[in-house]
Design a protein around this nucleic acid. Structure first.
Length: 426
DNA sequence: AATTAGATCAACCGCAAAATT
DNA sequence: GAATTTTGCGGTTGATCTAAT
């Protein structure tokens, strides 16, 4: 046992990720899957340890992240789950599609805890504070053992952290059990381990064309912890990238991810895109699809940039000033081949504002990014913007100004049908 | 306008389990 | 079965943002 060997090596970068690093990592994983995380840095040339790459992928680059403010329902669900599961953030996150354990942990520590206390509820035990104060605070029944061992606080030192068995959580809340919480806000829980679940239209729409509402929130509620609708990506000290959460996404149909390793044909989908693949039957993903998002020409001040986008394709937001007048389009294609399962994700453009300071070599010149073809899916790298755009227009057409013209329902139906057809569900 | 305090969040750390050799 | 490597988890930290003074 011990620390990751690469952590001992020097010259490894730490701190915030630059767009260039993100791009490298994303390109690599979309193309090959991550396989062994420890080998990712070598394969990508990143000066990061595998652990850091994994974390960046899971918490940030993964295409199925929901982003946006936590809804009240989500908060309630977190509280419910925490009551049962304790600080097992990963298990809690498993019940909240598109949310990461880190996100939830942050939300809990920064906001929910406080709220509960304000309501007179002890966040550790979920019991009234008065009850705790009345002397039974010693070992609350509901506190898991590790918390008991440490008095229910986080005031323990890292080096003395014990691994103590916690009480068995209610079975229906475990990730492996797809049963929803009866009569609770968690009725929509989708088991991430249940490979027999049949995806429904609602599932796809909810999962992949998700949370229009949350992404269009126009301000950060002062009483809620969550993301600013104008997500800000910190790229080192030299650049701050303000990213409009306007969702955009494409699937790259031409590249053949996972071919480095044959096992990737189906399994790597699971590893690279856990929440998605874990919720669908492990059939080969034989359809080709792509969602291409052309952008306006970059302009000064506010310009568009290729970057990671998430599976909120087709939703839009008018919360940012940097996306006005831009169009996003989606193209989906399908074929009937179930060979050569290909399924990759890529970058799409979106509105960005970057305030960069000059200086360090790692600084990214975003104007260069905009002209750099590697950020584009292989399918469109060799096309002119015009041809891409016209291709896309013929399919579906979304705008980012808050409206979804062009027969949205037809578009979403088509989207679902093609997606589901690809999974062999229709 | 400047300062300060609190809030937020990305990323690091160390540990332990799981997997591999 | 032991040693080593890799992965995953939860706790914590520090940079940055925002609101209040």
């Amino acid at each position: 046992m011990g620390r990751h060997s690469c952590c001992y090596k020097q010259k490894l970068r730490k701190g915030l990720w630059s767009p260039e690093e993100d791009e490298k990592l994303l390109r690599h994983i979309t193309k090959y899957g991550h396989g062994c995380w420890s080998s990712v840095p070598k394969q990508t040339g990143l000066q990061r340890c595998g652990k850091s790459c994994r974390l960046r992928w899971i918490n940030y680059l993964r295409p199925d992240l929901k982003r946006g403010t936590f809804s009240q329902q989500e908060e309630n669900l977190i509280i419910e789950l925490h009551e049962v599961l304790g600080n097992r953030w990963s298990q809690i996150a498993a019940q909240l599609p598109g949310r990461t354990d880190n996100e939830i942990k942050n939300l809990w520590n920064s906001c929910i805890k406080k709220k509960l206390r304000q309501r007179g509820i002890d966040p550790n035990t979920h019991k009234p504070l008065s009850e705790i104060e009345n002397g039974e605070e010693k070992v609350p029944t509901n506190m898991n053992n590790s918390e008991k061992a440490w008095g229910g606080s986080n005031e323990r030192t890292e080096n003395s952290k014990p691994r103590v068995e916690v009480p068995e959580p209610k079975p229906h809340l475990l990730a492996a059990d797809p049963r929803p919480l009866e009569g609770s806000s968690s009725s929509k829980i989708i088991s991430t381990n249940d490979s027999t679940i049949t995806p429904t239209k609602e599932f796809f729409l909810d999962r992949f064309v998700t949370s229009h509402e949350s992404s269009t929130t126009t301000c950060r509620p002062s009483n809620l912890v969550g993301y600013s609708p104008l997500q800000q990506l910190n790229y080192g000290t030299n650049a701050r990238l303000s990213v409009n959460p306007t969702p955009a996404l494409w699937f790259n149909q031409n590249c053949r991810p996972f071919e480095m390793n044959s096992e990737y044909h189906t399994n790597s989908i699971s590893t690279a895109h856990p929440s998605m693949s874990s919720s669908i039957p492990p059939v080969p993903v034989g359809f080709k699809c792509s969602l291409n998002l052309p952008s306006d020409s970059p302009s000064t001040g506010s310009f568009r940039n290729n970057r990671v986008q998430y599976l909120e394709a087709g939703t839009s937001s008018n919360s940012s000033s940097c996306n006005s007048g831009s169009n996003s389009s989606i193209e989906l294609q399908s074929n009937n081949s179930f060979e050569n399962s290909v399924f990759s994700w890529g970058l799409a453009d979106c509105s960005t504002q970057i305030h960069s300071q000059e200086g360090e070599p790692e600084d990214i010149k975003w104007s260069e990014y905009l002209q750099t073809p590697f950020l584009l899916p292989a399918t469109i790298q060799n096309q002119t913007p015009q041809s891409i755009y016209s291709d896309i227009k013929s399919e579906t057409h979304f705008t980012t100004d808050g409206s979804i013209p062009w027969h949205q329902s037809q578009a979403s139906d088509m989207y679902f049908q093609r997606l589901a057809a690809g999974f062999g569900q229709i």
